[in-house]
Every structure is written in structure tokens, then in C-alpha cells.
């Protein structure tokens, strides 16, 4: 029992060390990767623009559900007029960053991990090394940066569409007063709340992108290994997102 526990702990520390070392190697190549803005822009497009449809669709439906549930709950206390502020706070501070990160891990993270894993499996990464091109500069860093830049933007889009969804159900369907809805929201959502959402988006962006490129890079060069890398990307990103979410919330509240 004790032995198993120490082994587990040892593995966790080793994994943490490996991923930290990996992050440092990426960061050391970031300035040189930025010298080729084309590569980074291409990756922002891959991770960001290509995730737009899923982010917008889910944002709309999360907002609409929030409108229905929020209205039902607030109505019991006779305070359905606060729907705007309640839903907006929930979206800006929690739902937006977390759900966007989970969707990002599923859509862009898996794509990154499997792409890099397949590059490893087809010797493309080794070929680069033999050509004296550091794969961290050409492959890993631009993809990491693309994800880090894309997720906060996606988070903001998710929140905006979500609020539109709340409005659609609350105001258009259930009859909350339009003026009250918006003025309550403007009255209660502070800059600090938006900052909290944005900071979460940035932190989740770093975590999810790092996990995706790491899992892809260390994937076993087989079909099975690449499959496992994508699975681990989603699982680890989701767990990490929720843990970090708790930590940031605890610190910032």
C-alpha cells in the first residue's frame, strides 16, 4: 500500500517535471517562433477559427438553457427581473471559460495531439531534427501559441453568444422586460468579473494547449499510441481545467 502510494507520487512528480521542462523548451523557442508570424497565424486559424462553429452553437444552447433554468429558479423568489445579471455573471465568470475550454480540448486539443503524434509516427519530427530544424521552433511552439491566443478569444465569443441565448429565451420567449434585463446586467457585472473570465480563459488556454502538444509530442509512434494521446489530451485537459478553475476562483473571490 505504502509502496504503491510512493510510486504513484513519484510518477506524478516525474510527470510534472517532464511537462514543466517541456514548457520551458517551448518558451525558449517562442521568440524565434514569433519571427515567423505566418506559422503562428496559421495555427490561430486552426485552433480558433475552425472551433468557431462548435463554440458558437454550444454557447447559444448553454445560454438558452441558462435562460430557461434561471427564469424558473428566479421566478420562485419573484425576482425573474434579475435574470440578466444572474445569467451574465454565471457565463462571464464560470460557464464561459470552463465550457469553452472543455470544447476547445475536444475540438482543437485532440487535433493538435493527433497531428503532432502522427508527425512523430511518420518520422517527420525526426526528419526535421536531422535537417537541423528544432521541432519545438517549427511545430510545437507555433501550435502552442495558436492555442494560447485562440482560447481567450473563443471564451469571449462563447460568453457573448451565451448572453444572446439567455436574452432570446428570457426576453423574447418568457417575457422578461427588455430594459430591466440589460440594465440589471450592466449594473451588476463589474470589470473585475470580466477580468476573472478573461484570466481563466488565458490560463486554460495555456493548460489545454500545453497538454495537447505534450501528449502529441511524447505519443508512441503507433496507431494505438496516437489514439491514446488524443484520449489523454481530452481527459487531462478536462481535469486540469476544473482543478485550475477552483484554484483561480478561490484566489480571486
Amino acid at each position: 500500500m505504502f509502496k504503491a502510494l510512493t510510486k504513484l507520487l513519484g510518477n506524478a512528480v516525474a510527470a510534472f517535471g517532464a511537462i514543466t521542462w517541456f514548457l520551458l523548451r517551448i518558451l525558449s523557442q517562442v521568440p524565434r517562433a514569433l519571427l515567423r508570424p505566418g506559422l503562428v497565424i496559421h495555427q490561430i486559424h486552426n485552433a480558433g477559427a475552425l472551433s468557431l462553429v462548435i463554440i458558437m452553437t454550444c454557447g447559444l444552447f448553454v445560454g438558452m438553457v441558462l435562460g430557461l433554468q434561471g427564469y424558473d429558479m428566479l421566478e420562485r423568489f419573484g425576482s425573474e427581473s434579475s435574470l440578466g445579471s444572474a445569467a451574465a455573471l454565471a457565463l462571464v465568470k464560470e460557464l464561459g471559460p470552463v465550457v469553452a475550454a472543455l470544447l476547445f480540448a475536444g475540438r482543437a486539443g485532440t487535433a493538435l495531439a493527433s497531428e503532432i503524434g502522427l508527425m512523430r509516427a511518420t518520422d517527420q519530427l525526426v526528419a526535421m531534427e536531422i535537417m537541423a530544424v528544432d521541432p519545438f521552433r517549427h511545430v510545437v511552439a507555433p501550435r502552442f501559441l495558436g492555442g494560447v491566443i485562440a482560447l481567450p478569444l473563443l471564451t469571449m465569443i462563447f460568453i457573448a453568444i451565451g448572453i444572446f441565448g439567455v436574452q432570446l429565451v428570457g426576453v423574447q420567449q418568457l417575457g422578461v422586460d427588455q430594459g430591466t434585463f440589460w440594465s440589471q446586467m450592466r449594473g451588476s457585472v463589474e470589470v473585475d468579473d470580466v477580468m476573472q473570465g478573461l484570466i481563466k480563459g488565458c490560463v486554460f488556454g495555456v493548460a489545454c494547449s500545453l497538454i495537447a502538444v505534450y501528449e502529441g509530442y511524447v505519443a508512441e509512434p503507433t496507431a494505438e499510441g496516437v489514439g491514446r494521446a488524443t484520449t489523454r489530451t481530452v481527459v487531462n485537459s478536462a481535469v486540469m481545467t476544473l482543478i485550475l478553475d477552483y484554484m483561480i476562483t478561490a484566489v480571486m473571490l
Binding site: 508527425m119 511518420t122 518520422d123 517527420q124 525526426v126 526528419a127 526535421m128
Partner: peptide
Amino acid sequence: LFQNGALLT
């Protein structure tokens, strides 16, 4: 020259 070419896809 790699066995499968290892061209960047």
C-alpha cells in the same frame, strides 16, 4: 533519406 520519405505532409 527516410524509409517512407518523411515528407512534411
